[in-house]
């Protein structure tokens, strides 16, 4: 990606991918204000990108413990290393419903998340990207397996 020259028209379909990929993408600046809010996040939260833009993550989602999340993201800003949250320890970051509201067995979506650093031109980590994976099926299957 870094080496390729991206033409204007390519940006168009790149944006399409960001928008439609079935993975949540949230870009946050150092003040934890939302800079990007993709289709997955919009669909599951019901919050439009226009409304989410420049909102502080913790105001918009009081269910996320601020101190805990800062502890997770500090190393990303400071050291440029990625950090993770897993469903076994915290079932979800965003309280979304099950993707299959009728036949799904879990009440909410289980999530694994990864926080990755985004470098600006001067190599400083100015933004972080939060990637949200829906791992409900894995979580449910594992719970069933454990019960057996």
């Amino acid at each position: 990606m870094q080496q390729t020259n991206i033409e204007m028209e390519d940006i168009h379909w790149l944006m399409d991918i960001l928008q439609h990929i079935d993975v949540g993408l949230v870009v946050l600046d150092k003040k934890y204000q939302i800079q990007l809010w993709n289709g997955f996040m919009e669909s599951h939260s019901g919050i439009s990108p226009q409304k989410a833009k420049d909102q502080c993550l913790f105001n918009l989602f009081p269910e996320i413990p601020e101190e805990w999340f800062r502890r997770k993201s500090d190393p990303v800003f400071q050291l440029g290393s990625r950090t993770f949250t897993v469903w076994q320890q915290r079932p979800y970051l965003f309280h979304f419903g099950n993707y299959r509201p009728i036949t799904g067995q879990a009440e909410h979506m289980y999530q694994n998340t990864t926080i990755i650093p985004l470098q600006s031109i001067n190599k400083e980590v100015s933004h972080i990207c939060l990637i949200v994976y829906d791992v409900t099926d894995v979580a449910v299957n594992q719970s069933i397996a454990l019960l057996k």
Partner: peptide, 18 residues
């Protein structure tokens, strides 16, 4: 404890492999 372990692991491992 486990969360602490996981966070520390991510940082130590990332620092080294990067």
């Amino acid at each position: 404890e486990l969360e602490l372990l996981m966070d520390t692991a991510s940082v130590l491992i990332a620092a080294c492999i990067n």
